[in-house]
């Protein structure tokens, strides 16, 4: 058993973003690190991702973004906050420009992983920051 044991992660695209390859690779990387990945796929609205997060009781949400749909990511963060799910961090990956990444982080996105991020960084970040991380390390 590896680091990700018992941690549940949503991996999803958002809005009209059909670029699934990055998300699928991250899902695979997380699987091999021991996480349980709920893969939602493309054409998910923020509301659909919110419902999946509630029903699946996940610990972190990963959004793969390759279509400049940043407003929807911000809206997802807002929806989670309004629905008492602010303790579930949202992290992003994909071709997100640096200044946008900073803007997203200013609006509640926990972390943004640019292209070329080592998978060990993503794995390590989730283990340390997923909901309930403190409970697990205790």
């Amino acid at each position: 058993m590896l680091k990700g044991k018992g941690i549940k992660v949503i991996v999803s695209m958002i809005g009209l973003d059909g670029h699934t390859t990055g998300g699928e690779i991250v899902a695979r990387v997380l699987r091999d690190a021991g996480f349980e990945v709920i893969y939602l796929g493309a054409t998910q609205t923020p509301e659909m991702i919110l419902q999946a997060a509630i029903q699946e009781d996940v610990d972190v949400i990963g959004i793969s973004s390759h279509a400049s749909n940043y407003l929807q990511i911000e809206y997802l963060v807002e929806l989670l906050r309004k629905n008492g799910m602010a303790d579930v961090p949202v992290i992003c990956g994909g071709n997100i420009p640096k200044h946008v990444a900073n803007q997203l982080k200013g609006r509640g996105v926990a972390e943004v992983f640019p292209p070329g991020s080592p998978s060990s960084d993503i794995v390590g970040y989730i283990v340390e920051n997923a909901r309930g991380a403190r409970r697990r390390s205790a």
Binding site: R31, D32, T43
Partner: peptide, 13 residues
Amino acid sequence: SGGAVLGDRLRMA
């Protein structure tokens, strides 16, 4: 690894 990719929900979107 003990990990999993759970893809059933994808079909029920």
